[in-house]
Structure formats: C-alpha cells, structure tokens
C-alpha cells in the first residue's frame, strides 16, 4: 500500500477510535451517538433476529429494480440524445437543473397513477437516478477521442463493431461514474420516499426508530444501509480498476 494509503487508514482508525472512546467514557451522550461497536452489535442483532427481514427485502428489491431501470433507461436516453443534437439542445437546460427539482413533491401524483405500495417509490427513484446516468452517457460519448473514431473508419469497422470495440470502451470511465451515481440516487430515492411517505421498508423503520428514541435500532439500520452502499461502490470500483489495468493504465 502507498504512503497515502497507510496515512488514510490511520486517520480513519483514529477517527472511529476517538468516537468510540468519547462514547464509552460518556463524553458524548448515548442519546446523540452510540459507540461504533454498539452500532455494529445492534446491526448484527437486528439482522440475526430477522424482524426487519420483510422491510430489508422490500427496500433492496425496490432499489435493485430502480437501479436496473435507471441504468438501462438512462443509457438509452443518453444515446438517443447524442444522436439527435437538436433534441439535446432543447433538453440541456432541463438536464442541468434536474437535480435541484423537488422530486418528492410529485409523489402524491405518482400514488394516484400507480397506487399505494412499492411501485410509486420505484418510479420516483428511477426518475431520480436515471438522469445521472443520462448525463454521464452524454459526457462519455462526447469525450471519445476523434482519433479512435478515425481509426475505426480506417479499419472499416461496421457500425455495431465500432460501437462495441471503440465507442463503448472509450466511454466506459464516464459510464462507470454514472453507474455509481445511479446506485446512490436509487438508494436516496427509495429511502427518502420511505422516510417521508411510507409505512414499511428500511427508511420507514429508521424514521420510526428515530421517532421512538430507539437509537440502537436506528444506528444499526443506518449502518446496514451504508454498508450495502459501500460494498456496492467497492465492487464497481474494483471492476473499474481491473478494466483500467487491462488497458495498461
């Protein structure tokens, strides 16, 4: 590991160690933050007891569906906009302002259209996450070096071969950053929706535990959600690294 990597590890360990020590000695009240080790214990206990099983399944399933839809849909939309510059010029300001729109205001409308339950949340999260993927796709396609495309012409590649061998690999780094954002935004969409406007799911359980001053449950669940998000990001990151190494970067 590099020098920076070691220092980073030390910084992180020191941070969590300090929080742990402050909590254990009572300098931070357990009404505010419980010790990291206690969070971990609470998470393991919650998962082992299985009482959150249904909520976990529901939330993860919703996130997975929203993620899949937004990645495929966002990529498709990005390609369409790339091939149709006039449409793209018209939509550009909308895309740029998209993430400051109050998406959750449209939730009641989605309930009327899609009924109660998980479906409106999935639609909300998909709408929320898709545009990040679209913008990343556009950036990726825009930044393909001209040289590569000229090389493809010289080799007389067919259009599918050009897309598969040249365009997609060249755009891949941006596609991956879009992918990571789409994952995060799917989580935010589903969990924020559950927080505010739902009667089941992990987000609802976190909010419920907060309302009942049940800090162990709340922190256990928060840690669980963060762990899933981190594991997912690390997987994408590892794959990205492997691709980069294959190309000798």
């Amino acid at each position: 590991m590099s020098k920076a990597g070691w220092i980073r590890l030390v910084v992180l360990v020191a941070f969590f160690g300090a929080v742990e020590a402050l909590c254990r000695t009572g300098a931070i009240s357990p009404k505010l933050i419980i010790a990291p080790s206690a969070m971990l214990g609470a998470m393991v206990k919650l998962l082992a007891s299985g009482e959150m099983g249904d909520d976990i399944r529901q939330t993860l399933l919703s996130v997975a569906i929203a993620m899949g839809l937004s990645i495929v849909g966002g990529f498709g939309l990005g390609c369409v906009l790339y091939w149709l510059p006039p449409l793209r010029r018209a939509v550009d300001p909308f895309l740029a302002a998209y993430y400051s729109l109050p998406h959750f205001a449209f939730y009641p409308l989605l309930i009327v259209i899609f009924g109660l339950g998980a479906l409106p949340l999935i639609v909300l999260a998909t709408l929320f996450a898709m545009v990040a993927m679209t913008m990343a796709t556009l950036t990726g396609l825009d930044r393909i070096p001209r040289v590569l495309i000229k090389t493809a012409r010289m080799q007389r590649l067919s259009l599918p071969a050009e897309i598969w061998h040249i365009r997609l690999p060249a755009a891949a780094p941006h596609l991956f950053s879009g992918l990571k954002l789409a994952v995060t935004y799917s989580f935010i969409g589903v969990i924020a929706g559950e927080f505010i406007l739902s009667t089941s799911g992990l987000g609802h359980q976190i909010a419920f535990a907060y309302d009942n001053f049940d800090n162990p449950t709340m922190y256990g669940l928060i840690l669980f959600v963060l762990c899933i998000a981190i594991v997912f990001n690390l997987l994408v990151f590892a794959y990205e690294r492997r691709l980069a190494r294959q190309r000798g970067l």
Binding site: I33, V183, T184, F187, I222, V225, L226
Partner: peptide
C-alpha cells in the same frame, strides 16, 4: 457516493 439521507436522523440528534 453515500446516500446521505440515511444520516439525516443523526444530524437531527446532533
């Protein structure tokens, strides 16, 4: 890249 919304209850407590 963390879904920060999950941290909101912590912010509220702090």
């Amino acid at each position: 890249s963390l879904p920060k919304i999950t941290l909101y209850p912590v912010i509220l407590l702090l």
